[in-house]
Design a protein around this nucleic acid. Structure first.
Lengths: 144, 144
DNA sequence: CGAATGCCTACTAAACAGGTAGAGTTAGAA
DNA sequence: TTCTAACTCTACCTGTTTAGTAGGCATTCG
């Protein structure tokens, strides 16, 4: 089971680091890379992708760096995972954002496999879409 | 998110077909392959793996075929998935059967990412380890 | 200006997924 | 006994994805 790639783990770790930074002080790529043990050039790509998606912002040159663009109470794990790793769904026929029929499934409505994994997907989304960066930082006490 | 490979999906479909077969009547590989639209040689490998794991049994030659070895009330989705796809855990450091420390994680006990995904893993296991073939066949009404 | 910093594109090695191929073994029927 | 339908086993192949690496370009501040 993959569910989360190294890339997404790095993305989340970087965001947590940004959320922890005092009063939105920008952090350097090099800084995050060093402290979180993330390969620097790889992290660049990841941060850039999150910038394009409007999750973080950045500044170039001397005094540059990255910071969160939106309040950490507003950024969910689910959002980040969908951006970095793609749909959160154990089967393509269970994805809400990228539904695709299973080519070999004769009768989707009565597919036993699908029914079972629909419950897995619902439980997974329930956690990921309710947990924000703030939740994760504040001791990770469950939201619900 | 992968979670379930094509291979595991085929495995589960085959098991469901066996569970539905009248009174444990053995089914031919060819028969399952045809009815479930699963490539025949691929299915062979999958069934063989499940035979080695003691989930199904088989008979060769004329009148051969596959059948469940254990009662369908006793075979869970979780068991099959672990066999075919490996550990059910979003992160190696969350696997119970195949724990591995995340190489880049400084302090596992305080890892925010780990805490969040631990909840995902628990929810996932709760579904998969409680759902049996019988549950899936009997209209898939939730066990819990 | 020039040095530090982020931006962008291209490439690559290794692992994995999803098969295919074909020879070997076994068991029942004629 | 021999034929043949079935399962058994091992090897191989091809495309995709993952996890990076590399290196030049573009900004911004001092």
């Amino acid at each position: 089971m993959a569910l989360i790639t190294q890339r997404a783990k790095y993305a989340l770790r970087a965001l947590v680091a940004l959320a922890k930074a005092p009063a939105g002080r920008p952090l350097l790529i090099a800084e995050i890379s060093r402290e979180q043990a993330i390969p620097r050039k790889f992290l660049e790509q990841i941060l850039l992708e999150m910038k394009r998606a409007g999750i973080v912002t950045s500044r170039r040159g001397r005094l540059g760096g990255y910071a969160l663009l939106r309040p950490p109470t507003d950024v969910t794990f689910g959002e980040v995972l969908r951006l970095i790793d793609g749909p959160i769904a154990p089967l393509p026929c269970l994805s809400r954002v990228a539904y695709r029929r299973c080519a070999d499934c004769a009768d989707e409505a009565n597919c036993e496999i699908r029914r079972v994994f629909a419950r897995v997907a619902a439980a997974t989304r329930d956690v990921l879409d309710r947990t924000t960066l703030t939740d994760a930082v504040d001791d990770g006490a469950p939201v619900l």
